[in-house]
Amino acid sequence: MPDTVDPGRSVPSPLVTVILPAKDAGPYIATTLETLTRQFPDAGALQLVAIDDGSSDGTGAIMRRYAERLPRAEVLVNSEPRGLATARNQGLTRVEGDAFCFVDGDDWMQAGRLAVLRRRLDDLGVDFVRTDHVTVRDGRRSLVRAPYPWRERSASPREAILPDDETTMVDYPFAWAGLFHRRVLDAGLAAFPEGLFTAEDRPWIWRLHLQAGSFAVVDAPALLYRRGVATSLTQIRDRRQLDFARALTQVIDLVESDPEAERFLPKAVRTALALSAHHLVRSRRMTPALRAEMRASVTALLGRLPRGDVSAALGNLSGPRRRVLARSLRQSGHGA
């Protein structure tokens, strides 16, 4: 727990606040927390805000055990699960100092990663930095590169949204793949949409790139991301997956309200079509009732998309994706 200090003595702010939400991450979270103790030579440079989001296992107890080892740490407890977006937002209200980041309870990072990221954030003077990451599945590791060609230099986040027919930084929505200056928080760009249980990072990354002032992709010790974890929402096929359509509708709303909407809408529409096709394929393993709900959600989303941009984007989609979307496109009034 925090050390007792002389109230008359100034206490330096932490270099980085780490926001760590988790639910039922007992098999993994000790590894995550252990790596946080290896980020700075001085443990007081790191502030930990851990959120036990309604866990039914020992996640909270492990969080509290590690919080005792850190001079700046607290554990927030939600009696019922509130979802990743809400839990991250709870952590944002506790940020001290000038920099913060996110980490999930089944991931971990190499020693010294946050020290490097804080130095690069300061040296480049940007609003946020982004990094590559390493996926881990069944013991095999694969490097996933941030989809931006320039490294170690300040750039405009808006320019990293395009081109619309290539993978870009808005297709790399992983909140844990970087570090953020407090300016992002103060400008209202750090919070996640409340009430979304999946795809909450899609509106988040679009708002960040549309409205932040500067960013950079930098090299740093790796963050390692576990794939195939049974409790991950990417592995669970229940009603929470329907939130992707609401998330993409929020993306379209964001882009349409931007002064350069015509410039960015083709990219947003292409993303909505591609993700709709992906979720329609995944829905084949859902119950018939839930599959029908998914199709209705996709149809409503497609009906929200500008007709001209849909027609242009369909020409760049693969044949299998167009076939998956055909029925929903017809029902939404676009035809196919």
Rank of each mutant, 00 (worst) to 15 (best):
P81T: 11
P81A: 12
R82H: 07
L84G: 06
L84N: 12
L84W: 08
A85S: 15
A85Q: 09
A85W: 08
T86N: 15
T86K: 14
R88M: 11
R88G: 09
R88H: 14
R88W: 03
N89P: 09
N89E: 01
Q90C: 05
Q90Y: 12
G91Q: 01
G91R: 01
L92G: 02
V95R: 01
G97A: 01
G97K: 00
D98F: 01
A99W: 00
A99L: 05
F100N: 01
C101Q: 05
C101V: 03
F102V: 00
D104P: 04
G105Q: 11
G105L: 10
D106L: 00
D106A: 05
D106W: 08
D107N: 14
D107K: 10
W108T: 01
M109W: 02
M109L: 08
A111K: 04
G112F: 03
A115S: 13
L117S: 08
R119V: 04
R119N: 12
R120M: 09
R120E: 14
R120N: 06
L121P: 08
L121D: 11
V126D: 07
D127M: 02
V129T: 09
V129C: 07
D132Q: 07
D132L: 03
T135D: 03
V136P: 01
R137L: 13
D138H: 15
G139D: 03
G139S: 12
R140N: 12
R140Y: 10
S142D: 14
P149T: 03
W150E: 09
W150N: 00
R151T: 09
R153F: 09
S154G: 15
A155L: 11
R158G: 08
R158P: 02
A160F: 02
A160H: 01
L162T: 11
P163F: 10
D164M: 07
D165R: 14
D165Q: 11
T168Y: 05
T168W: 10
M169E: 07
V170T: 13
D171E: 12
Y172V: 08
Y172M: 05
P173Y: 07
A175N: 11
W176F: 14
W176G: 12
A177P: 09
A177I: 00
G178W: 06
L179H: 00
L179W: 02
H181Y: 00
R182S: 13
R182Q: 14
R182K: 11
R182M: 07
R182I: 05
V184I: 14
V184P: 10
V184W: 11
L185A: 10
A187V: 00
A187N: 12
G188R: 07
G188F: 03
A190P: 06
A191N: 09
F192T: 04
P193D: 14
F197S: 12
F197D: 10
T198N: 15
T198P: 00
T198V: 09
T198A: 15
E200Y: 14
D201V: 10
D201L: 08
R202A: 13
R202S: 14
P203W: 13
P203N: 14
P203D: 13
W204G: 03
W204K: 05
I205Y: 03
W206S: 10
R207I: 04
R207V: 00
H209D: 04
L210I: 10
Q211S: 13
Q211Y: 14
